[in-house]
Design a protein around this nucleic acid. Structure first.
Length: 404
DNA sequence: CGTCCACAGGAATGACGGGCGG
DNA sequence: CCGCCCGTCATTCCTGTGGACG
């Protein structure tokens, strides 16, 4: 019976030999203590402190690579600030918006409105009307509002910086309330593309979050592991291996925690009493496999074909191929499938895209008399890529049989 | 020392499909 | 509900370029 099977799954989940509390390893969990971010916490705290005296804190622009604690520090400081504010009876409202999820001006404004207790229909009003309602509500409350726009690059890439401009200038139309904006991004180049007026108002204060090193990552992992796992469930060296692997990948704490969590899940699946070194290595390849599947499956057909061409040429030649060679083989594939091929210009862009996704690495080389081109290598194991490309039915035959 | 290869990659433009806003 | 606008994928045309070869 299905329900019996489910029961036994739930049973065994409850008496896990490994986990006590796996929540604390999830990426959105904010611990009570954030090791090695004291400096940033103090700085952000002192920037926002004026809100307690009903003055407007400076706008802040925060940048740093993924998994460097930007979101965690911001949420942490805001939580403390709000607590303090309610203790002393000052009205401070914070509004956190992730613009990866809410990536239109309208949806961001709806979120801000919600924080003010406004009920705004998710569609039907004009953006200008929502903006007007939000501003009126805000001003009638006579408060300091802090708006956090996380992963702000998504909003800017889709909608430009108009909303940012309006928000940072909103104080001019407010008489009783004040608003300040915290923008968070991991794309440093993005700052350059902003309208200078936005750049100067949003960047009143800038904060940079440096990557964690292996030692710091280890501290972070220990702190969580103590809560997440049974005390005997971690074998020697597991934590430092997770830290070392993640430190190699630009000190990404999220990656480190993912490794540890997945290693724990694998250990549990294998009914092991402990998480061991080998589980961490398995976790690493499982995470990578998932990532590659995720990326490759959403690629358009032509990108897949170009990727297949790169895969074949990397496997069957001693030297990694150039753009021209990849394009030639790709055209063969298209002829075989009786579909039209894209131009070499487009192929060049596709290769850059694959490079940015971290699937291949394309290095520009000049071979003098023999021209300037890119040397394209796979940056993931061929069998993983093979598996991911095999999901696409149209490629199956080419993958198995076709020889260049 | 100039050529010229084999592309890189910018700009302008177009087809197309989906969702926003009126 | 419908038109319009916007993002994505793509093309065409183009200028730029590091260095081995003659």
């Amino acid at each position: 019976m299905t329900s019996d099977i489910l029961d036994s799954i739930f049973e065994s989940a409850m008496k896990s030999k490994i986990f006590v509390n796996r929540e604390v390893l999830r990426p959105d969990y904010i611990p009570d203590d954030l090791p090695h971010r004291e400096e940033q916490i103090i700085k952000l705290g002192s920037i926002l402190a004026p809100a307690l005296q009903k003055s407007r804190p400076s706008n802040v622009f925060i940048y740093g690579l993924t998994g460097t604690g930007k979101t965690a520090v911001t949420k942490y400081v805001l939580k403390k600030l709000l607590k303090k504010a309610s203790e002393i009876g000052t009205d401070v409202i914070a509004c956190y918006v992730n613009t990866r999820q809410d990536d239109t001006t309208y949806r961001v404004l709806v979120r801000v409105g919600e924080c003010l207790g406004l009920k705004i229909p998710f569609t039907g009003l004009s953006t200008a009307e929502v903006y007007r309602r939000v501003m009126r509500a805000l001003d009638s409350l006579s408060i300091v509002m802090i708006v956090v726009l996380d992963e702000i690059d998504f909003l800017i890439k889709k909608r430009g910086d108009e909303l940012l401009y309006r928000l940072t200038r909103a104080n001019e139309e407010l008489t009783r309330s004040k608003i300040s904006v915290i923008g968070i991004t991991n794309d440093i180049k993005l700052v350059e593309s902003l309208d200078p007026r936005v750049k100067s108002s949003l960047g009143e204060v800038e904060m940079v979050f440096p990557p964690y090193n292996a030692v710091q990552l280890e501290d972070i992992l220990w702190q969580r592991a103590k809560i997440a796992f049974r005390s005997e469930a971690i074998d020697e060296g597991v934590i430092s291996l997770c830290a070392a692997l993640a430190a190699r990948e630009h000190g990404d704490a999220r990656r480190a925690l993912d490794l540890l969590r997945v290693a724990g899940e694998i250990a549990e699946r294998e009914n092991s009493d402990k998480i061991m070194i080998e589980h961490v290595y398995k976790a690493r390849s499982e995470i990578e496999k998932d990532r590659v599947f995720e990326i490759v499956s959403t690629l358009p057909l032509h990108s897949k074909l170009i990727l297949l061409s790169i895969l074949k040429l990397n496997m069957e030649k001693k030297t990694p191929p150039t753009t021209g060679e990849v394009y030639a083989l790709y055209k063969e594939f298209c002829k075989y499938l009786k579909i039209e091929s894209v131009t070499q210009r487009r192929t060049s862009d596709v290769i850059s895209e694959l490079d940015m996704l971290g699937i291949v690495s394309a290095r520009i080389v000049s071979r003098g008399r023999y021209g300037k081109t890119r040397i394209i290598r796979l940056s993931i194991p061929p069998n993983v890529l093979e598996g991911a490309l095999g999901e696409e039915p149209r490629l199956e035959f080419l993958l198995k049989v076709f020889r260049p």
